[in-house]
């Protein structure tokens, strides 16, 4: 905070506390959840600096400093992995939010209530399909010998394509699948935000002779800006965390595609867990979290410089 000074009639902490006891009680479950699942395990990150063995436990195992982090650098993949993870997440965040906004606006413009419900439900459904099934569906669509796409190509006289050997097109496939799964769900938040926009703004715009497009451009979009910024900031916190289920089930162990599809999670899963090694996986997790933390702080700082009201803190 800057030099605003305390408000003139500041209540004592205890007073504030007792005044808001009902509200505090209501947020107790969430607070407990974060304490138990996010804060309590934090000391466990110490594993990353030890040569962990089961008998001595987390804090009894010998300390080895940064040795566990060496493997990240040694494997020479740190750069590829970080790059892939960030680029995929950027694509998910930017394209995802734009598409969600577009869908929410289009839903809002649909006049038939029945059709609106149907389209919403249809877009929502893919969210409930597990990644394992998505992987199976993708394999049955894309594989060379019996896949639906190649069957179609063969039937029409073309040469089948080896999709599972073409690393170049996988970013496209993964992003498409991700958007297909998540857009319907994500658009709900924007749709709710649109519902919350003051109707009188639209009426005023209509009286001023604004077309439908102009109402969207000058009323809806600006009103969605705070929601957009908050959602983007939240998702930036997870920019170092990939959608493991999706990547693993689509790509699996096909090393031919790793160059463009390997993210931190899948790489760790392959090389660390099969190596029976908790320490290096914790090291990677810590690297991921610290990097993600730095990114959120930076993004928030930039937003605050532009418009303080939009910043998270």
């Amino acid at each position: 905070m800057t030099s605003d000074g305390p408000p003139p009639n500041e209540k004592s902490l205890w007073r504030q506390f007792s005044d808001s006891r009902v509200l505090l009680l209501m947020c107790l479950p969430a607070t407990l959840f974060f304490l138990v699942f996010n804060y309590a395990p934090m000391p466990g990150a110490w594993i990353a600096f030890t040569n962990f063995n089961y008998r001595d436990g987390i804090f009894g195992s010998p300390f080895v400093g940064f040795k566990n982090f060496e493997f990240l650098i040694k494997s020479g993949q740190l750069w590829t992995l970080t790059r892939n993870t960030i680029l995929y997440n950027l694509a998910f965040i930017v394209l995802g939010n734009l598409l969600q906004i577009a869908i929410a606006i289009m839903l809002n413009e649909i006049r038939s209530a029945f059709f609106k419900k149907i389209s919403q439900a249809a877009m929502f459904l893919p969210f409930f399909i597990s990644a394992v099934l998505v992987g199976v569906i993708a394999f049955n669509l894309l594989n060379y010998d019996t896949g639906a796409i190649n069957a179609l190509i063969k039937q029409t006289g073309g040469d089948p394509i080896k999709i599972y050997s073409m690393a170049g097109i996988w970013p496209l496939i993964i992003i498409t699948v991700h958007l297909w799964q998540s857009t319907g769900y994500g658009s709900i938040v924007y749709f709710a935000a649109i519902m919350g926009i003051d109707r009188s703004l639209y009426e005023a715009a209509a009286i001023d002779g604004a077309s439908a497009w102009q109402r969207i451009r000058h009323v809806t979009l600006p009103s969605l800006k705070p929601t957009f910024i908050i959602l983007v900031l939240f998702s930036l916190g997870g920019i170092m965390h990939g959608n493991f289920g999706l990547f693993w089930n689509l790509v699996g162990n096909n090393a031919g595609l790793f160059q463009t599809t390997d993210i931190i999670e899948t790489s760790v899963y392959r090389m660390v867990l099969s190596q029976n090694n908790f320490t290096t996986s914790t090291a990677v997790g810590l690297y991921q979290s610290l990097f993600g933390f730095a990114l959120v702080m930076t993004a928030n700082w930039i937003v605050r410089r532009i418009n303080r009201d939009y910043a998270l803190f």
């Binding site: 090389m271 190596q275 320490t279």
Partner: peptide, 26 residues
Amino acid sequence: KSAIDPTLAAIGGVLSEYLPQLENGK
């Protein structure tokens, strides 16, 4: 293995990239 665990993990990483592709003639 405790002394070379991270190295073996890194070796495993490299091998998992190349051996399956060599094995399948890719």
